[in-house]
Design a binder for these strands. Structure first.
Lengths: 112, 112
DNA sequence: TCTATAGTTCGGATAAATGGAACTATTGAA
DNA sequence: TTCAATAGTTCCATTTATCCGAACTATAGA
């Protein structure tokens, strides 16, 4: 198991962020992590929107979020603590993440 | 040639917008169209960032932008007039497009 | 009617997403 | 220690999406 790759703030690309969040499962995961007040494990998302996600797919989704620079993942014992990098990203791309999270909330509210 | 599909405002999905703009060529095209004060043809983008884009690829990129709801394309004689749907989208997802355009500008400025 | 121009569609090659199965790392109990 | 359980990762085959050259369609103008 090679060490987890986290891009430096200055290496975070807009295209990578948009690609990562263009998947409904990933945007749901990220929204949850960004809104949580404590770190979330991967396995907390074994189901997303009442749909079960295979763990190999979950692992892939977390990798995409991590490599886009959206989350930071640190092993804590047997599990992984995932936290968002919203504050950092805000410094590089002001307003971007809040606008996306807001749009996601608008869409979810509209759908319900 | 079937008629061009433009989603209604209420059918525009966040994921579709993010996916469309997660490609460096498409975000460059959209930025240009959104910032232009008159409609732009497809062929105006035969080169993007000094890189030639094959016209079948260009056509595909415009289709993705159109079906995501980001642009409106109307045939005018032999060519296509493309305009952005920024104002409409602003009503559904306030601040989203400006934040993305700003992030793109920040990144372009940083790279130079 | 012929030619040129602007885009679209087709189809094959290449790349990326999906998910089951096997593997690795850490913990805690026997 | 050793063993079992848990949390993620990696491997790999299948499916799906992207890329782009070539052929096609639509419109305008000579």
């Amino acid at each position: 198991m090679r060490p987890l790759a986290h891009p430096a703030l200055e290496d975070i690309q807009l295209e990578g962020i948009l690609h990562a969040l263009s998947d409904p499962v990933r945007v749901a995961i990220f929204t949850n992590i960004a809104g949580a007040d404590c770190a979330q494990t991967c396995s907390a998302f074994a189901e997303v929107n009442d749909k079960p996600i295979p763990k190999s797919s979950l692992s892939h989704h977390f990798k995409v979020l991590r490599e886009a620079g959206l989350i930071r993942s640190e092993r804590q014992g047997v599990e992984m603590r995932n936290t968002s990098r919203c504050l950092e990203i805000e410094g590089r791309f002001p307003g971007l993440i809040p606008a996306i999270l807001n749009a996601h909330a608008v869409q979810a509210a509209r759908a319900a």
